Computed example of a mutant assay.
Amino acid sequence: MSDRTGEVYRVDWVPGTDLLHGTCHCGREHRAEDPVRMWEWMLAHPQGHRMPEDDS
């Protein structure tokens, strides 16, 4: 997905799993099973880049 600012957000399925691998326009990466949660993480840039599971 790309917006008018030229920022590119990429989400790929990880073969053999139920995981999605997302890459934000800033280069930060994240994995999640839930597509809604993945897009919330990306679109909350930069505040959304720190998710609860990142604390472990």
Rank of each mutant, 00 (worst) to 15 (best):
residue 31 R to N: 12
residue 42 M to H: 06
residue 53 E to S: 09
residue 2 S to T: 14
residue 14 V to D: 02
residue 34 D to N: 12
residue 1 M to V: 12
residue 20 L to P: 09
residue 21 H to P: 03
residue 37 R to A: 05
residue 1 M to W: 12
residue 36 V to L: 14
residue 8 V to T: 11
residue 2 S to Q: 10
residue 27 G to Q: 04
residue 50 R to Q: 14
residue 38 M to C: 09
residue 26 C to W: 13
residue 25 H to Y: 11
residue 13 W to G: 06
residue 4 R to P: 02
residue 37 R to P: 07
residue 54 D to R: 08
residue 41 W to A: 00
residue 18 D to G: 09
residue 31 R to I: 04
residue 46 P to K: 05
residue 24 C to H: 03
residue 12 D to L: 12
residue 53 E to M: 04
residue 14 V to E: 02
residue 4 R to V: 10
residue 40 E to Q: 15
residue 17 T to N: 03
residue 47 Q to I: 09
residue 32 A to F: 04
residue 34 D to T: 09
residue 12 D to W: 08
residue 41 W to H: 01
residue 55 D to E: 13
residue 56 S to Y: 13
residue 2 S to M: 06
residue 23 T to F: 06
residue 42 M to S: 02
residue 49 H to Y: 14
residue 45 H to N: 12
residue 19 L to S: 10
residue 42 M to V: 01
residue 45 H to R: 04
residue 8 V to Q: 09
residue 5 T to S: 11
residue 48 G to F: 02
residue 46 P to G: 06
residue 3 D to A: 05
residue 41 W to G: 01
residue 43 L to D: 15
residue 53 E to L: 07
residue 8 V to H: 08
residue 13 W to V: 11
residue 38 M to K: 10
residue 38 M to Y: 00
residue 5 T to V: 08
residue 1 M to K: 11
residue 14 V to P: 00
residue 44 A to V: 11
residue 22 G to F: 01
residue 6 G to V: 02
residue 4 R to I: 02
residue 47 Q to H: 13
residue 20 L to A: 04
residue 48 G to C: 05
residue 49 H to V: 00
residue 9 Y to V: 02
residue 56 S to L: 08
residue 28 R to Q: 14
residue 38 M to N: 08
